[in-house]
Design a protein around this nucleic acid. Sequence first.
DNA 1: AATACGGGGTA
DNA 2: TACCCAGTATT
Length: 352
Amino acid sequence: MTAVPDPIPRLRKALLAWFDASGRALPWRLGAEGRRDPYRVWVAEILLQQTQVARGLHYYDRFLEAFPDVGALAAASTHAVLKAWEGCGYYARARNLHRAAGIIAADGFPSDYGGWLALPGVGPYTAAAVSSLAHGEARAVNDGNVRRVLARLYGEARPTDAWIQARADALLSPVRPGAWNEAVMDLGATVCTPKAPRCAACPLAAHCAALATGTPTAFPAPKVRAAVRAVEAVAVLIGNGQEAVLERRGGGLLGGLMGLPTRELVPQETAATALEALCKRLDARPGELLGQVQHRMTHRQITLHVYAAASSLPRQVVATAALSRLDHKALGLLRTRQDSLFAAPLMGRSSI
DNA sequence: AATACGGGGTA
DNA sequence: TACCCAGTATT
C-alpha cells in the first residue's frame, strides 16, 4: 500500500515561499516574524476591520503619530481618538480601541489569544491575528481573504464559518503561524482577488479546485445582503462653515461623532414639520433651505434637508470636531453658496 | 442566525 | 450597479 502524499506540507511550502518573495511590506510588520510590536499590530487590525489595506494605510501613520503608544492612547480623550478616525467609518472601533487602551494601560498587554479576545472590539479574527503575529501563537485567522482563498482552494461555494475555521486550522503552519496568516491574507488581497484573480501567478494554482472548474470567481457564492433603506432627515446649520452649533451623536449610527443637529422624518411627516420640531427642541428660529445632500451608506440612502437657523446656542469650531462625511457634505453646502457669491466678481475680473 | 454598523474601491 | 473590504457587538 502506497500512502497518498499529504498535500498540506507541499501547499504550506509553496505559499510561504511565495510570501517570502512577494509578501507586502506594511508598516505594522516591523520587527521579527512572530514577535511584532503588539501595539502596532493591534491598532492595525482594528483599523483594517472591514477596511481595505490601501485605505487603512492612509490612517495608520497619522494615528500612530498622534498616539505613539498605548499610554498616549489611554490618556487621550475619546473625541481626540474619533477625530483621528474621522471618515474611516465603523466608529465603534475607535471607541472600543480607546476603552481597551485604558484596560491595557492598567493591566498590561494580553499575552495570548484568550486575553486579547476579552478586550472590547477584539473578536476571534483580531485575537488570532495579534496572538499569532505578536506572540507567535498558533491561531489561524478567518477573514474575508481566508474565506475566499479556502473556498476556492477546496471548491466550496457556500462555506460556513465553522468550515472555513476548520480548514484554516488544519493548514496553519505550526512553525510559522504568523507568517502563514499574513501569507494567506496577502494572497487573497493581491492574487486571489474577488473579481479578477491572477491565477497564473498563484502559488496554489496546482492545488486549486475552483480553478479546475474553469470559473474560480464562482467561489465563494455572493453573500446575501440587507436591502438599502431610504431615510429622510432635516438638519439645521446655525453659524457658518467655520463655527457652527454641533451636537454629539449618541446611539449606534455615527455614535460619538459631532454633527449638525438633526431629526429623522417619521413616516408621513414633511421636512417642514420635522424642521419645526427640531427647532423647538433647540429653541432655535428656522431659516431658509440651504439645500439637500444625498449620502449613501452601506445599508441606507439618506436624504438630508439642510436649513439655516438662528439661536443663541454656543458654536463650536468645525475644524477641530470629529464629523461624519454626511455632516461634511452638509457644511459644504454652505461653503458652496459662499464660494458662488465670491465667484461672481472673480469671474468678472479674470478675463482669460 | 440576523442585523446594525461607514465609506470607498473594483470591474 | 453589484459586490467586497485583514469583523464585532447586539439582538
